[in-house]
Computed example of a mutant assay.
Amino acid sequence: MDLPQGDVRLLGSEVAGRLLASTELARLAYVAADGTPRVFPMMFHWNGEEIVMATFGGAHKIPALRARPDVALTVDTPGPPPDVLLIRGRAQVTDVAGVVPEYGLIHRRYFGEEQAAATVAEIDRPGLTMARIAVRPTWAGVLDFQTRVPRALAERS
């Protein structure tokens, strides 16, 4: 796929597809309420249009994401060579009374059907509040360090 970094069609590449279907954690970068950067590892679900994550009500990242919704995400493998998917977009935070719908899908992919069902059953109690964090990519980059490498590295070759 000969698309420039930043083109969201890179999400259709083999590397991106593999990472979006993997059990690697996404690392969500955002600006906290005190103005300093944060990176938080999170399980996620890719629905073909947005990366969906879930957190429990009261998490400090919720008001921070609402105040400054521009975020960056990475999903990567340790390598060598690493495969890296870079995404930028805006986080949309939605309060949910109960379990975020994608929460079970997320846990199913990471831990299997039986463990996902047990996890959802354990937390699904009256009064539970969660937040659905959805990031619709506006920029995408892919690095596989074989066919797609960072510009600075490519220019040195």
Rank of each mutant, 00 (worst) to 15 (best):
M1S: 13
P4L: 15
Q5K: 14
Q5W: 12
G6F: 03
D7R: 10
D7N: 10
R9Q: 06
E14W: 07
A16K: 05
R18I: 08
L19H: 08
L20R: 13
A26N: 02
L28D: 00
L28K: 00
L28Y: 01
V31G: 01
T36A: 10
P37E: 11
R38L: 10
V39W: 13
F40T: 11
F40M: 14
M42C: 11
M43V: 10
H45D: 02
H45Y: 01
W46L: 02
W46C: 04
G48Q: 05
E49A: 13
E50M: 08
V52L: 04
A54N: 11
T55P: 07
T55F: 02
G58K: 06
A59R: 13
K61P: 01
K61L: 02
P63M: 03
R66D: 10
A67S: 08
A67Q: 11
R68L: 07
R68E: 13
A72N: 08
A72G: 04
L73D: 07
L73Q: 09
T74W: 12
D76K: 11
T77H: 03
P78R: 07
P78Y: 09
P81G: 02
P82I: 03
L86D: 03
I87V: 14
A91S: 03
V93Y: 05
V93I: 01
D95L: 11
G98P: 09
V99Y: 00
V99Q: 02
E102S: 07
G104H: 07
G104P: 06
L105A: 10
H107D: 04
H107S: 07
R108I: 09
R108T: 12
R109G: 00
R109A: 00
Y110H: 12
G112L: 15
E114R: 09
Q115D: 09
A116R: 02
A118L: 10
T119R: 14
T119H: 08
P126C: 01
P126H: 06
G127I: 10
T138D: 15
A140M: 08
V142D: 06
V142W: 02
L143Q: 00
F145S: 03
F145Q: 08
T147P: 15
R148C: 13
P150N: 09
R151C: 10
A152I: 15
R156V: 15
R156Q: 15
S157A: 14
